[in-house]
Design a protein around this nucleic acid. Sequence first.
RNA 1: GGAGAGAUGGCCGAGUGGUCGAAGGCGCACGAUUGGAAAUCGUGUGUACCGAAAGGUACCGAGGGUUCGAAUCCCUCUCUCUCCUCCA
Length: 425
Amino acid sequence: MIDIKLLREKPDDVRAGFERLGASVDLEAVLLLDARLRDLKSESQTLQAEQNRLSKEIGRQAAGEEREQAKAAGTAVKAKIEALAGALAATEAALEEKLLELPNLPHPSVPTGKDDSQNVVLREEGQKRSFNFAPQPHWDLGTKHGIIDFERGVKISGSRFYVLKSWGARLQRALITYMLDLHTEKHGYTEIYPPYMVKRECLVGTGNLPKFGENLYRDAEEDFWFIPTAEVPVTNLYRDEILEHTALPIRHVAFTACFRREQMAAGRDTRGIKRGHQFDKVELVKFVHPDNSMDELSNLLSDAEDVLKGLELPYRVVQMCTGDLSFSAMAKFDLELWAPGQNEWLEVSSCSNFGEFQARRTRIRFRDGAEKGKNRFVHTLNGSGLALPRTLIGVLETYQRADGRVDVPAVLRPYFGGITILGST
RNA sequence: GGAGAGAUGGCCGAGUGGUCGAAGGCGCACGAUUGGAAAUCGUGUGUACCGAAAGGUACCGAGGGUUCGAAUCCCUCUCUCUCCUCCA
């Protein structure tokens, strides 16, 4: 949620920001509602003050004519307040609704662009492996070894579900443990194991609702929503709290399953395990002081990169242009690893700075040590560190041998009890 | 799932219709005292919105109702605790 004061005081700056996004938003309507709400509020507050004054007076009076008159006056004021109440509540709700649907404003450093074609590849890290044979895509490797069972996944859960088996499942588990160990031991994150189902307000807090409900699964009878990412429960951990500035930055890492409806056109990304309705992810979430959140974003990105560096998987860093920024993000960088079998870059991480956009929606503030009495919103950041299925693809395809067996990356060997080669010829 | 009890400020805890944004204590901050500290004493100490300020408005789990007036009365919901039941 953007700051209504900012819109009120610098409407042209806000308008320019949304134009860079290519978003068409009716700011006039918002400003109109805001002005109307302020009028109604001030009118209502004046009446309430009058009501309070009368009530106190009545309290002091003894029973009698005067007291009855004062009571009658009180009834009249009460009627006026009630007459205003409907319009006040409706205006407040209408403004809230509009504000919740406004996207975040882009950070000045974000390049202007209309869509993903104008994203900027900042750098490529690591050397793509050269093969003296044709590398197989992971779906062939997975089927050959019996470690990815697509047919049975579809049988039990439907399309876009699969089953990992044997050392395929173990490889994924090794990757999860490796990532959690790396972030907790080397990068200073505290591990969180959150619920996978959350209340609606959590999703409003992160920006998934009210606009993107069609991407989410939910329980039909109760207010339970399946998380599309650990970002949702972990960001909401401190909802409605005022933190001490000395507690910042807070760094959390969480492993969870993620659930997404993925109502995209049939036929896209249907092959393999690249995109499913359920997938695992290790997620990094930070709550930081607003003055250095962009530096914190760089650090977060570097923490995510370390996972790929450790695994010795080549990747590239892509900066999102304004047109490809997500709803809640003010700046965003993606990490894409190279999958030699299917011959494409795969997005395995998305690291964003949300500024105070989510903090405002979740009311996460901190007491600023510098300015006494001033409570400010924290900045929230998060990034995948990393998404499991695609990292698994990267390992399978990059570490495959000509005979189809797969080498265990050095950093994963501690999790494999001495095994260094997976599969049989 | 059944029965009962409860939800007040950072924490504990008083408050059953008016002068209560809320006693008291703890904690915390600042000051006094001290060579320094402990102890002691004094002052201060919730959040949001409106206002240049003075000040005003709202909030005592949430929502609704009664009343001129609600932390206090009524209704609904949520959550917590105890006992029983069940269970990984």
